[in-house]
Design a protein around this nucleic acid. Structure first.
Lengths: 108, 108
DNA sequence: CTCTACAGTATCCTTGAGGTAACTATACCA
DNA sequence: TGGTATAGTTACCTCAAGGATACTGTAGAG
């Protein structure tokens, strides 16, 4: 008996969906702490505007932590919060499922 | 070391995201086999056009099975495929995370 | 003096997911 | 003769996410 509520699932989905959010989260999972320019480099086609917007979204939800160093040229880095790290199992579950799905599609 | 690939996660996300897909999947998880009209009733604000489109999407990915009975008035029902049922753990994981998130937001 | 590095803003534009409303086919019922 | 039920389809519309491009501020290097 599953007892899954669409509302809760939607909440989780809202935070991790979008064209870029999964890639950003995965970059931070694998890269620990990354500067803005490092993130941009690992997402080849994203524009600065969009990257900033997505990072601000994630920060507002306390999923990532943004640290500004008062230097010139500016330096800002991003990392997963402890809370954000609780998303890792969710992403792992989806990743595992995605691999099965790809496997399956290859056979058709 | 997580080793999560954005590509695979995106694949999984594409199949279960959208404004209505989670609700449809959950209805079928909880309701086993449902007619078109039953699904429509359990998603109060969806239009026929959108519901049809979403169901066709899910059918094309082999996640649900669509059965047409050659009767008048028409009867069609939908259920999760065995393959579609492998999504249940994914949705459960997201559901559990969503509950934690809601809990957390309530305290702020 | 001006060029570069970095992390952004500001403007304007495009696209596709989703939405609304009307129409379809057919058998049965009154 | 017309109304009802079911599972759609068709044509048209809307809006927000995302995208392209240019501009900003400041310190040090040359």
């Amino acid at each position: 008996m599953p007892l899954i509520s669409s509302c809760e699932v939607d909440t989780a989905l809202e935070l991790i969906t979008g064209k870029w959010k999964p890639s950003i989260l995965l970059a931070l999972i694998n890269g620990d702490t990354l500067r803005f320019s490092e993130l941009k480099r690992s997402l080849p086609n994203i524009s600065q505007k969009i990257l900033t917007a997505q990072l601000r979204d994630l920060e507002e939800q306390d999923i990532i932590i943004r640290t500004v160093y008062p230097e010139v040229p500016p330096r800002v880095d991003y990392r997963l919060s402890e809370y954000g790290k609780t998303l890792i199992p969710v992403l792992e579950t989806m990743n595992a499922w995605g691999i099965q799905h790809a496997e399956r599609m290859r056979q058709k």
